[in-house]
Write a protein that binds this DNA or RNA. Sequence first.
DNA 1: TTGTATGCGTTATCAC
DNA 2: GTGATAACGCATACAA
Lengths: 334, 334
Amino acid sequence: MAERLGVSPSTISRALQNHPSIGKKRTAEVHKLAKKLGYYPNSVASNLRRNRTNLIGVIIPRIDRYFQSSAIAGIEEVASKAGYYVIIFQSNNSYEREKENARMLLSSQADGVIACLAMETDNYDHLAVFKDNNVPLVFFDRVCDEIETHKVIIDDFGAAMKATEHLISIGCKRIAHIAGNQKVAIFRDRLRGYQEALRKHQLEQSEKLIYYTEDLSRMEGEQAVAHFLESDAALDGIFCSNDTSAISAIQTITKQGKKVPEDIAVVGFSNTPTSLIVSPALTTIDDHAFEMGQAAARLLIRQIDEKQETVASETITIRNDLVVRESTMKIQSN
Amino acid sequence: MAERLGVSPSTISRALQNHPSIGKKRTAEVHKLAKKLGYYPNSVASNLRRNRTNLIGVIIPRIDRYFQSSAIAGIEEVASKAGYYVIIFQSNNSYEREKENARMLLSSQADGVIACLAMETDNYDHLAVFKDNNVPLVFFDRVCDEIETHKVIIDDFGAAMKATEHLISIGCKRIAHIAGNQKVAIFRDRLRGYQEALRKHQLEQSEKLIYYTEDLSRMEGEQAVAHFLESDAALDGIFCSNDTSAISAIQTITKQGKKVPEDIAVVGFSNTPTSLIVSPALTTIDDHAFEMGQAAARLLIRQIDEKQETVASETITIRNDLVVRESTMKIQSN
DNA sequence: TTGTATGCGTTATCAC
DNA sequence: GTGATAACGCATACAA
């Protein structure tokens, strides 16, 4: 420690954090010496003493998915501005990993946690623990009803309905759906939204028009289309629960000699950059991942700062927009 | 602390980490109580005492770029298997942010640092500090010669040459290049590789065939193509320093009524998933971002574990592959 | 305005 | 095998 200035450690400590009770001259002096000596405060010790780490833990399935990394970018932007670090734990959609992550996070004394649930997860005790230890917790996107805490979501039901109604509005009569893993609430909601739109407009509903996938992969998009085309479904529109499967669907349809959107119109979900690259460009729902991250971080930081036990759980619904592109731009037939 | 078992803290501590000198019965007992009490070790205190955090700091430009998030995924995979956490700092390509990040990282007592330099950075003192403090440092992708430390790179020069020679091999005679920011070494190397290929095969070189961009964005790809087509360049091939600009180039060329690859063949760089989505699919260099991350993490962890000051700096060159797709598949004209 | 003393929760060292 | 003790580096209550 830099006490070769002839002052006590406490003075140094106070000067370094610009404590008002220290003379300006002293303060400046100390800062200069610190720089010269290449002194960097040991935040581990500081954290221990203050019982605060300025660390926000994030538990997410995978960092190398566009939606997730955008959300993290949003979290990071808000967090770093507020003086927080972000530490990321990937669950790889595994329940065990997620449990392990939570354990580590609790040990690291993070000031708060933001989580997007793994696909597998259907027991939430490992996350309830945060509440028990008074660590603020915010869910985003893939939330669960079992834990009462703060949440940031979009209206998946409404968005899916909007997407499907858009297909209806351009004249589609037999609309199929490529559905995500039904263990996950958002994908259930999207399916429900699709169904509700059909019901409302009195279009045919049939299980033959729904293809259930494991994780909406490229390959599954291909399989879905193959399945639909082989069947007697005679579909003229598809609403897909994500962009990956939608893009794969477009490519497969085209490869089969059919035209998008003339023969079959396609709508995706998330507005990833890829939706601009596929030809025809993909109509999709913009779910504003970055904003979700921002909102989650803001909500969390507010909890941390207020640290009253009394704050009611808040659910923020982020706006979503239908972005119309070529994959649904056809001359209306009637 | 859980000493209501009637034993001392040290026994607890030892039992918790399965120290061999503790009776099996005791150990089991302690573990059970810990679970019942919902006890989580405070790793901040542990870190302070052990003078070790098991934290790996990563400084990168932006997390929401495919190359970066893949590399991070690779880092994370290796790190978490070895018992390390990964904490991410984004520089947003800003030198000032990067400096700030380094400062914070040093304070957080990270055991090691992996960095990919910001575009702006041309002074490296803020990173040299790690060496001064005996914190192992590994650069990847965007490295610098000024600091002697461990590095993970690809052979950008060779890869660019390979890409360009591929264009030559399919009969292209007037090959243009969309170049990245020349402040960054990898983009300079790719330009040099392109030039060397032309030289070797005695094709015309001209500044008119090179378009310099700021950050190889979509828009710049468009502008580059517009520029080339307006000029009297009469090009029949383009080597682009990344996939984004290449894809944008393909789309612009197509929009202008020319055909890819028949009129103009296109090669990109990085093999992002988007190269499969554009039509025609993009020929590109696979730079194995995930593997780069893995290699960087492995190299770093080895440094941390050995912690001998004597380890010579090592530079690992990751393989790269030309992935040939439709954007260069034309019937050879001669 | 500054110094002194104490403790944050853990673990390494030494003694038993 | 187990317990007592000190120390990691910093921040604060209190005294001066």
